[in-house]
Amino acid sequence: MRNTTLVLAILLSSHGAYAAPKTAEKLLEEIKVSRESVSKSDFEKIVHELKKVNSSLNETLNDYKKTDPKSESPALEKVLYVVFSMEPAVDLATSKKPTKLACDKAKHKVELEDKGSKPEDTPLSPEAQESLRWIEILCK
């Protein structure tokens, strides 16, 4: 009986049922790999890939809901910063190629939300930088 329980526990944990949600760092790594895989592709492929990235972000948020229903953990806050930073890029991922003005607005929004009230020479956060790189390939 004890051995059966042990085997079941191992199986369930390897299945990811109790896997911890992805960290912000892990997400950023995956987003970067996705971007690099389509950086030389056409607009439709880039949009398709970015929508997959967005789905992954939403799944991660759902995972956090299960482990942190009050949404107060520092780890979740970092993930939310990634989600918010990527939003302007995700918003550009539509069927039509964005205009120059739409691209400039998106870049400004990323910068404003990242360092709107910080000293002028504050570097952009990693998530803001990643979002700007996506906007660059969407708008090329």
């Binding site: 806050e77 939310l80 910063y81 918010f84 939300e113 990242d114 360092k115 709107g116 009230s117």
Partner: peptide
């Protein structure tokens, strides 16, 4: 803390 903190 900025806009992202407020949204969080």
């Amino acid at each position: 803390e900025g806009i992202k903190k407020a949204k969080a």
